[in-house]
Amino acid sequence: MSLSLSRRRLIGSIAAGTGGLLLAGCDRLNRNDDFRETLRGAERLTMRAQRLISDRGALAREYTAADMSPIFRANGNRMPASADYQRHLASGFREWRLQVDGLVARPLSLSLDAIRRLPTRTQITRHDCVEGWSAIGQWTGVPLKLLLDAAGMRQSARYIVFHCADTFGPVPYYESIDLIDAFHPQTILAWGMNGRMLPVANGAPLRLRVERMLGYKHAKYVMRVEAVASLAGIGQGKGGYWEDSHDYEWYGGI
């Protein structure tokens, strides 16, 4: 009896010990650069596979007003702290300008009124956070394609970078998308939400909606839209704040 008990206990501690070693091994792999690089290979594979089976113009589902979330959760930064932003907010964004520059023939500097006079698109879509929650809201704004066409993209441009007014500590938020998503018909710079002006918590005066991507790609408080040939020179080079700081995937389609 005591023999079988001690044997049972031995097997139990061997199992627990093996489990602990495996877990510690997983943690070490998680911190290992070569292993992480291998896992990153799957990100490229996923992106290519999704692009392969999907029309580049395939639309995200649009919902009806009845489907909307009663309360749309805002997260990330909800109030940019910079003095500049506070000044713009206090004056109703009268002096605020959106810059469109980089690899374009005609850089633009647009007031909020000028942007609101441009053709608009209104869409009720689902916002999917990388954490797992979703909320459905209505967005009104100018298709990004119209701004990029007005500015005249150069042949060498490959990505569109969004520079934002909010910061995490000292680090400004930024995000980037490729031209397939930039010219997608549902990709808009939204100034309206749920039939009203875009609230500060959701990114006033202007935020990106890129509907086939997870929430962190939808940059809020957009100040500047820059066309670039490569993401290498921006931030730490991975194409976005969360990509640089936490190794989120640049491809936010899954």
Binding site: C26, D27, N30, R36, V130, D247, Y248, E249
Partner: peptide, 22 residues
Amino acid sequence: WATIPSYYDLAGARRWHLAFAW
């Protein structure tokens, strides 16, 4: 003891999950 990695890391867990999914 039930998660990979064993400390909170959403981005890391997604890397594992979406790679091993293949």
